[in-house]
């Protein structure tokens, strides 16, 4: 079985995140990390390839793919620490400024290229990237690759070539099913990602990463990046901090003070 997990290098949500003058998310090695929600997708893939037992593990492959500048490699290294077998880094100056469609185009092209060396059984992604939080890449990837989409899975099963996913949406639970190959996205409720073990941490440092340019994945510079983007960030600015007043300590009238605050500020 070959499973592709597209991953993203994102600014740590605990860090001071910002935009560059060009309206792009500022990404540095310092504050960058593997998108936490991708760990659930990697865990899903690892559990599938480990299910048949350690003696069969080598027959399966978990491939992590990322698109982005040099530092995006950090996301692949983290995925190696968890147990991913192969890492692909698609990087090209022309990719900068891609919108969601450009990103999906590049990831899909990399997956197509991977399928030339053997069929891909599943593509599993996290439910969103913690920088953009758009949650649309899995759907766009399915559209690009013309594969069934089973997204936002809180429970995921794969047997006899069929994928079944349970989705907990706002106010409704759906169970959907489709034949593989398919694009699956999973939430942070689907499993608990493992911690890297020492041996894998050491091995991840020097593990080889496959580097592909746009030419390698049969794309033109105009297919992605600023050139193809249907949206442009034309303005970006940090918001002023809130006007914070010191907390009121309850001395028997804290609730009244709360109600008074809402009433006095015309909030009720």
């Amino acid at each position: 079985m070959r499973i592709v997990v597209p991953v993203k290098h994102v600014p740590d949500i605990h860090s001071d995140r910002s935009f560059t003058e060009e309206g792009r998310v500022a990404r540095g090695v310092e504050n960058g990390t593997l998108n936490e929600l991708d760990e659930n997708a990697i865990e899903c893939a690892l559990q599938l390839v480990e299910a048949a037992g350690p003696e069969h593990r080598a027959a399966h492959e978990v491939i992590v793919v990322t698109v982005g500048p040099t530092e995006a490699e950090g996301a692949l290294r983290k995925a190696f620490q968890l147990g991913a077998d192969t890492g692909v880094h698609v990087t090209d100056p022309a990719i900068g400024g891609s919108d969601v469609f450009g990103t999906a185009t590049a990831v899909a092209a990399a997956i197509r290229k991977l399928s030339e060396s053997g069929p891909i059984d599943l593509i599993i992604t996290g439910m969103a990237a913690l920088d953009g939080l758009g949650s649309v890449i899995p759907s766009l990837l399915a559209a690009e690759l013309e594969l069934p989409q089973l997204t936002l899975g809180t429970r995921f099963e794969f047997s006899d070539g069929m994928v079944e996913v349970t989705r907990e949406l706002d106010g409704v639970t759906e169970v959907i099913t489709a034949p593989a190959p398919a694009v699956v996205s999973v939430t942070d409720h689907v499993n608990t990602p493992r911690y890297p073990n020492f041996k894998l941490i050491m091995a991840a440092r020097t593990k080889e990463i496959i580097q592909w340019s746009l030419t390698d994945i049969a794309l033109n510079p105009n297919d992605v990046g600023e050139a193809a983007a249907r949206t442009h960030v034309v303005k970006s600015a940090p918001r002023p901090p809130r006007d914070i007043t010191p907390p009121v300590v309850d001395k028997g009238d804290g609730g009244l003070a709360l109600a008074r605050y809402l009433i006095d500020n015309d909030l009720i």
């Binding site: 910002s18 935009f19 949206t231 442009h232 960030v233 034309v234 600015a237 940090p238 918001r239």
Partner: peptide, 8 residues
């Protein structure tokens, strides 16, 4: 942060 996204 606030950002303005223009659709082209």
């Amino acid at each position: 942060w606030d950002i303005d996204c223009k659709v082209v």
